[in-house]
Structure formats: C-alpha cells, structure tokens
Design a binder for these strands. Structure first.
Length: 420
RNA sequence: GUGGGUGUAGCUCAAUGGUUAGAGUACCGGACUGUGGCUCCGGUUGUUGGGGGUUCAAAUCUCCUCACCCACCCCA
C-alpha cells in the first residue's frame, strides 16, 4: 500500500473543517488590521534561504528539501515564508508603495525533521509581515494582532514571551561579553554548545542541557542594549502594557533564525508538548538589505496551523458540518427530484441526492446516516399534486409544501431569513 | 542523527507456545415496494507490519528491519 510520505498527512473530515475555520479567522483578523494577502511560490532558489535564514542555522544546514531541477538550478522547498516575502519586496520594488507595507500569507512549508507531536515535515504557516517602518508601534501592532488571534480562538493556557536581542551595534558587544563569561566554562558545555560558542553563542542561552546556575551567572542582553535598542524595547513594553497585553520577559529567548534583531517574541501553549511554540516572530531590520534591497526595517511573525489545530482539539473545539438536504424519490420521479436538487443548489443549499433508490425506508435510513437536516420526499403522489414532503430529521415532523414554495420555506427554517 | 514506547480485520481491542486467529463496531444484503439511526438474520474483510532464528508447534520466545507515536535536538 502506498502511504503518505513520512511526516506528511492528509487533512479531511473534522480536521479540514477546523483547518478552513482557522484560515478564515486568521485571514479575517489580518485583514481587519489592514494586512493584505500575498501568495509566493513554494519553491525558491536555495541561495535565498542560505542568505536569509542563515548558513549556520539548523534549518539550512540539515533540514531543507533541496534538489536540482532539469536545468541544473539548485531549488529548495521553502522551510519558511518570511524570506520569500523579503525576496518579493526587493524584486518588485515594494519600497515605492507607501510604508509600512502590511502583508499576510498562509501556505505549506517543508522541513526534513523527525516528526513528533506538533512537528511535521509538511506543515502550514500563517504569518504577517509589516515592512518599512522602524517604529516600535509596529512591533506592538504585530504582537497585538497575534494576541487578538489568540483571543478569537479563545486559546487558554497561552502566554506571550518577549525579549530584545539588539542590533548590529550592540549585539556584537554582548556576544563578546558572553563569550568571555563562557570561556572559563567551555569544557562544561555540551558538544552542541561548544560549536555554538563559535557560530552563534546566543543560542547557548536557550540550551536545556546547560545548568541554570551557569546561565544565571552569564551577562544579560538587556544590560548591553545600545541607547536606540533600549528605547525601542522600553516603548514596546510600555505600549503592550497600555494595550493590556500580558507578556513575560525572557532573556533566554533568542530564536533560531539569523535575521532577527531587536524585538523577538513567542506565544507558547502547554497543550503542544515539547513543541510548545504556537507562533514566533520579531523584528528583522537588515533582511531586506541583505537580499540586495535598501535598508528597510520590518517586523512579523509566523504561526503553525497544525499547532493551532492541536490546541483547538485539546480544547474540544469542533466546527459543525453545513446543513445538508437529502432527496428521496421513486423511479418515476427521478427527473423531478434532480430538478429540485439543482434549484436548491442554485439557492446555495447543500443537497445530496439518493443514488441507490429502493423504498423510502432505505432512503430515509441513508439520509439519517448522512446527518441531514431535512429529507425532501418526492414520490408519485407529490408529483401529481405539485407538492413536496419535507421531513425534519431531528424532530421527525413532516410537512407538505407546494413545490414552488420550497426555497422560501427552507430559507426561513435554515437560515432564519424573514420574508425571503 | 540518538533514545523510549507501540504494531493483530476499515476502526477499538481479545487470544496460557497448542484446533481453522476471535469479539465489538463499521460496511454490504435480507426481514422491509411510502417513512430514518432500533431489532433480528445472514455475509465480506487478516501475508498477526516485513524478514530470519528457536520449536513437533510462534500473534506469543529471539534477532534484524520497517512504520507510527513520544522525547532529545531544532522550531511553527
């Protein structure tokens, strides 16, 4: 038997209803904040991710689906989408559009990792990017958008974690201070962190293997932020408080992608197991420049749809099926039944035609198994009298309705429309 | 890449090393040619994940392998 590729899954039934519902809430919320959708290709030149996400990151080093096409180009299935947005911004000269440019996206991403709870090889990301403005108000707008989303899904047991990791001016100073503090303890570090010591010492801060004691003794980035970064961060915190958005400072929050600067944040949930980050993001003021554009600051976040759905399921959220009408008929009334079905479909109803025939008992039974709201019965008697039997499957009440009043009746009873 | 757990019918699960691997459920048909999820009767479904080994005999013991789940790592 041919199965789904490892780490990939089919989405159907309950899951696809939650998936559609999630997409709807996400895109509506983003649009209410003035963000418009952008769709970019799933495949990009490998170089894009090497230069944006960073050559030394785990994502680029070992998690990308990279292949050569028939023309010899090195292509990669996107492991995230921010890089594509930045590429698109530079390519189409979006700097000529009034700033900030507010965009949102939703689509599949791919990472070659060992699957586990909340972690798939193909997964959907929703995200927003606000580009072209250094104001801390844009940071808080993006965080507020994330927070609003969490509220609209009634997410419980979540919290916002916040930190600032400085800029090109102050981060190198902090890095040196960190390295100096770590040097005497180099031999105690785990193998991974020994490597990080040279490539990206900040990541040692969120390594779970190192002792809390050691971590506590290390210098804190907050004490090394330059004047600009410190003011920026203070304003972000002040505005979050004004906006009644609860947050928790976490000076070990450093993120795994190289392009982040200043503000970084995560929303985490206890329902997600070890993969507890529902969404993560931050400011990336040099990414556009790195990809050949002007110096354009930006901020955004990305969210895992499957993780969102995992939380919704843990909270026993379900999305009801749309009401279904079922049509039962007899041999001689097939044409009338098909006509009625099509008329109802043109009015926007979901209509199932019985396909197996037989007596009404069998057809009613099948109708019930489809969880239909009404069964519409058209037999020879009804055909002659130009009426339809409409049976409410919950109350078992049955009514005779003149054929030409069926739409009015259903609109009243299903959609609650008056005088329709 | 490193650990741990689990693999028996579409699904949920039984079966002391010993007949032809069962049950519930689902599905199909009938009782039942104008009124539903009930009931009754009947029926279909298995390389016991795969391969080797031990044994008179393996779903059961053993080894290898694969898949899934969980964790490390990383991240959404």
């Amino acid at each position: 038997m041919i199965k789904t590729v490892k780490g990939c899954k089919d989405i159907y039934e309950k899951d696809i209803r939650l998936f559609h519902y999630s997409k709807k809430v996400l895109s509506e919320t983003a649009e209410q904040y003035g963000y418009t959708e952008i769709v970019t290709p799933i495949i990009e030149y490998t170089e894009l991710f090497q230069r944006s996400v960073g050559q030394d990151t785990d994502i680029v080093e070992k998690e990308m689906y990279t292949f050569e096409d028939k023309g010899g180009r090195s292509l990669t299935l996107r492991p995230e989408i921010t890089a594509s947005i930045a590429r698109s911004y530079v390519e189409h000269h979006f700097e000529t559009i009034p700033s900030p440019l507010r965009l949102y996206y939703i689509g599949p991403c791919f990472r070659y990792e060992k699957p586990q709870k909340g972690r798939y090889r193909e997964f959907y990301q929703f995200g927003v990017e606000a580009i072209g403005d250094i104001s801390p108000l844009l940071d808080t707008e993006v965080i507020s958008l994330a927070f609003t989303i969490a509220k609209r899904f009634s997410l419980e047991e979540i919290k916002v974690k916040l930190n600032s990791i400085g800029c090109k001016e102050c981060r190198p100073v902090y890095k040196d201070a960190l390295k100096n503090a770590l040097k005497p303890h180099y031999d105690e570090l785990c193998d991974n962190c020994k490597k990080r010591f040279h490539t990206n010492p900040l990541r040692i801060l969120d390594c779970k293997k190192e002792s809390d004691e050691l971590k506590k003794s290390l210098p804190k980035i907050a004490d090394y932020l330059c004047k600009e970064c410190k003011e920026h961060f203070d304003t972000v915190k002040k505005h979050l408080t004004l906006m009644d958005i609860p947050f928790e400072l976490d000076n070990s929050l450093v993120r795994g992608l190289d392009y982040y600067t200043k503000t970084v944040f995560e929303v985490v949930s206890t329902n997600l197991g070890a993969q507890n980050a529902l969404l993560g993001g931050g400011r990336y003021d040099y990414l556009i420049e790195e990809l050949g554009g002007r110096h354009i600051p930006a901020v955004g976040f990305a969210m895992g749809i499957e993780r969102l759905i995992t939380i919704l399921e843990a909270q026993e959220k379900t999305v009801e099926k749309q009401p279904v009408l079922y049509i039962a008929y007899q041999k001689n009334t097939l044409k009338e039944a098909i006509d009625i079905a099509n008329i109802l479909r043109d009015s926007g109803f979901i209509v199932l035609m019985d396909t197996k025939g037989g007596n009404f008992k069998n057809q009613l039974e099948r109708s019930a198994k489809q969880h239909s709201l009404y069964t519409i019965i058209i037999g020879e008697e009804e055909k002659e009298k130009r009426i339809l039997q409409i049976k409410n499957m919950e109350t078992k009440e049955q009514k005779e309705i003149p054929s030409d009043q069926i739409i009015t009746f259903l609109k009243n009873h299903i959609r609650g429309e008056k005088n329709a």
